[in-house]
Design a protein around this nucleic acid. Sequence first.
DNA 1: TATGAATGAGCGTTCATTCAT
DNA 2: TATGAATGAACGCTCATTCAT
Lengths: 191, 191, 191, 191
Amino acid sequence: MERTDKRGKIFQAAMELIAERGFHGAPMAMIAERAGVAAGTIYRYFDNKDILITELYSELEEELRSALEEGYSVAKPIRERFLHLGIAILRYFIAHPLYFRYIEQYHNSPYGVSLRRDMIMSKIGKHNIFKDLFEQGIEQQVMKDLPITVIFALAFGPLLVLLKDHIHGFVILDDGLIRQVIDSCWDAIRR
Amino acid sequence: MERTDKRGKIFQAAMELIAERGFHGAPMAMIAERAGVAAGTIYRYFDNKDILITELYSELEEELRSALEEGYSVAKPIRERFLHLGIAILRYFIAHPLYFRYIEQYHNSPYGVSLRRDMIMSKIGKHNIFKDLFEQGIEQQVMKDLPITVIFALAFGPLLVLLKDHIHGFVILDDGLIRQVIDSCWDAIRR
Amino acid sequence: MERTDKRGKIFQAAMELIAERGFHGAPMAMIAERAGVAAGTIYRYFDNKDILITELYSELEEELRSALEEGYSVAKPIRERFLHLGIAILRYFIAHPLYFRYIEQYHNSPYGVSLRRDMIMSKIGKHNIFKDLFEQGIEQQVMKDLPITVIFALAFGPLLVLLKDHIHGFVILDDGLIRQVIDSCWDAIRR
Amino acid sequence: MERTDKRGKIFQAAMELIAERGFHGAPMAMIAERAGVAAGTIYRYFDNKDILITELYSELEEELRSALEEGYSVAKPIRERFLHLGIAILRYFIAHPLYFRYIEQYHNSPYGVSLRRDMIMSKIGKHNIFKDLFEQGIEQQVMKDLPITVIFALAFGPLLVLLKDHIHGFVILDDGLIRQVIDSCWDAIRR
DNA sequence: TATGAATGAGCGTTCATTCAT
DNA sequence: TATGAATGAACGCTCATTCAT
C-alpha cells in the first residue's frame, strides 16, 4: 500500500527511542527525525503521543502473542506446553531486546496503569493461552492449587528479572541455561 | 528538634507523588504543595530534583535492608533464612506499598540504570545477605548449581510480580498465601 | 526569501533591549515580545541566550570592521590612515548608538572576558588594521615608541569616553569637533 | 564603635564579589557568607541590594577623591597638577584593582545610568578638581579650547583602557611607563 | 498528504527579601 | 541586634501540538 510505510517507520523510531531513553527521552521531534518524517506528519497517523505509545504497545503485544502461539498446541501435555511458552518467551525477547525494554517502560508508567494486568497476561477476549494452561494444570492436579495470579508470578516472574539481567549483560542466557531456568520455574509451580 | 520537619514532609510528598504518578508526573511545585512548603524551600534541603530522587531512594533502600535484617541470623539453616527473607520482603512492601512503587519507578528510569543490579540485590560493601545466602546454599548443595543471578531471579522474581498484583488488587496476599508463595520459590531453587 | 525575517527581528529586539537594559534586564520573554514572536521561537534560531548574545556580538563586530575598512587604504600615509579610522569609528557609533551600547555591555560581562582585548582591537586572523597601522607608525618613527597596547589606549580611549558622553547627551559631536578630537588623539601618539 | 564592623565587612565582601563576578554573580547570600554574617543581617545596614551597590560606589568614589587630593595643590602650575592627577589615578587603581573593576561594573549597569557622568568627573558640589583644573587650563591658554567633556576624555580615556589592560595582564604599567603615558595625555590636551 | 516553523504552557531552578525566633 | 529558614516571582528552556503552506 504505502510506498514508504511512514507509519511503520514512525513505529520503529518511537519504539527504539522509547526503549532506549524512556518516554521523556523521546520527544516527538526526535521520533520524527529518526523516522525520517516531519514532526507534524506523526499526527497524521496518531492523534497524539499517548495514542502512539499505546498503539505501539498493543502491536508489540500482539506480535508477542503470535510468536508464542507458533508451534503451540493445546493437544500436548501441560508440562510440555509450559516449557514451550517459557522457552519461547525468553527466546523472543532475547531476539528483540528493545521490545522488552519498550514493554517494560510502558508497564512502568502512567500509560500502563490503565489497562493493567501483567505483561503477557493481558488477556483480551476469552482465550488466553496462559490462563487456559494454568487452569488446566491446576484442574489436572499437575500444578499447585494456587490462584492463577500466583502461578503466573511463579512461572514468569523470574523470566522478567532474567531478561533484564541478560539485556544489561549480567548473565548470558544460552540454550542450556534457558532450559534450566524454565525447568526451575516448573519446579516452582508443579505439584 | 524540628518542630515541623520540613525535610520529612518533602520526602513524604515526593515519595507519594512519584510512586503514584512517576517522576514526570510529580513536578517540584506539586511536591512542594503537597508538602505544604514553597517551591523554593525544597532546594534548601535538596540541591536539585535528581538528588531528591536519589536520596529518597537510598533512604528507602536502607530502611528495607534494616527491616530484612531484623530477626535474620546467619546461624540458622539455609532454608529457614530464605523463608525469613522472602516473607519479610512481602510483608514489608505489603505494609508499605508506596515504597514498592517508588523503588520500581526508580529502577525503571535513567536514575536506576547507573547503580543497577536488581532492586534488593543492591549490595553495598562486602556483605550482602542475599549473595551470601545463595553462595552458601549452592556450596552446601542445598540449592541448584546455577549462577547467582539466576538463583536470585528464581527466588525473588515472583515476588516482584506478586507485589504489583497485590497493590493493584489482583490478589490478596494473606499470611497463608505468603507462606505458600515463598515455599514455591524455594522449590524453584532447591536441589 | 524569508517573508518576515524572524531571525533579524529577534536580533534587533535583543540588541535594543540589551543595549538599553543590560543582559539581565532583557529576559528572553521580553526579547520575544518585542520581536513579535513567541518565547520558544527564539530557540529555533539560537540554541540559548548565551549563543544569541555571542552571535549578535560577532555580527556587530563584523559590521563595524567592514565599515572601518571602507575607503581605508594602506597606501595612504600613516597620519591620514589614522584620521580615517578615528573619524570612521566616531561616525559609525554616532550613527548606531545602540551598537555601541551593546558592544560595551558585551565587553563588560563574563561573555566578553574570554575573547578579551579591547573592543575594536579584537583582531581575528593575521591582519588587524589597527595593529598594522601602529606597528608601521612606530617603525617609521612617526609615532612614539611605546607598546602597541599603550598607543592603542592613547588613540582610542578618548573615543570610548566621548561616545558614551555623546550618547548620554553631555556633548554633541559634530563634524568639527570630531576632527578636533581625532587631531588631539594624534597629538598624543605622534612623535 | 562597632565591635566587629559588620557594615565594613559587608562592603568589602560585596566589593570583591561584584568586582570579580559582576552584580549577578554576587547574590546576597554569597555576599553574606563572605562577610561572615547572615543574609538577613545585610538588610539591617542596607535597605536593599541596589542601595548597597550604590552606597558602595559612593564610598569608593569618595576614597578615590581623597587619594587624588593628597599632595595636590592648586598653587602649583597647571601641567604639574595634571601630571599629579594622572599619575595618582593610575597608581591608585593599580594598587586597588578591585576598586577599578567595581567602579567599571557600576558604570556599566543600570545603576550607573542614573547618576551618570564619567567616573572621576562626578562632581558633587561646587568644587571639582578636574573641572577647575581644566577650566583654568583653557583660560590660561595652556590647554586646547575644547569643551571640558572633551578635554576630560582626552586626558583620562586612555587611562581607563590601560588600567583594564594592566589588570588583565596585557601590559605592565611601571613607573616609567606611567610617566610616558601621562606625558602623552598631556600632549593630547596641551596647546 | 506532508512539512516544519511557530506556539505557549509548563518545567526546574535561583535569589532578593521577609520574619519568627 | 542578628539569624537563616522560608518565600514566591521570575528566569531560561523544552516540547507536544497546530497550521499555513
